[in-house]
Amino acid sequence: MSALIDCRNLTKTYEMGDTTINALAGVSITINQGEYVAVMGASGSGKSTFMNLLGALDTPTSGELQVAGNRLSQLNADALADFRSGSIGFVFQQFNLLPRTPAVENVALPLVYAGVPAAERNRRALARLEQVGLAERSHHHPKQLSGGQQQRVAIARALVNDPAIILADEPTGALDSRTSEEVMAIFDQLNREGITIILVTHEQDVADHAKRQLVFRDGLVVEDRS
């Protein structure tokens, strides 16, 4: 069985004037279907860069990357959009919900671009909100929700397309420890249901939820513990 995520010698460099930053300096790693991975490391070690490459939000400088059967370097812009739409669910530290838009519409947004009809969108979005325990908040706007609730809406949005992989970059970074636990409980449950989860965190107790921990330093994976 081939791995769900397979990266070979992945690099990402940024040219800043006459200095070159090696955000990723050659990462080779495989992640299988159903894994629960925590990505750790000091600030600036390349964690977000790595996540963005996995989700095709950014392109590597060199190296090979295969995700869910797609060789990302060979996909054009439209195919990358289809890939993000079909295979990936993103959760961001800052939630990134659309303001002045009810929770249910925020959750349904990916379905809009997947071409799902309105009634079906609504039905599926409500089901996902229910799954994260926010069914009765479906018509609240982000401003009317707590940070934890907003992040749960964002998770529902990430789930709505039934992605193979959830990529969460510091999903608890803006939350207190109690709400963090609530959010992590949802990730635990999703992983039990078979969804592959990769999350970035600075906190060991958050990382302890995962079954595998990758530690980055200076753009390289320096530790890979299961």
Partner: peptide, 8 residues
Amino acid sequence: LRLAVGAK
């Protein structure tokens, strides 16, 4: 965000 959730 729209691009991240699949907008072309």
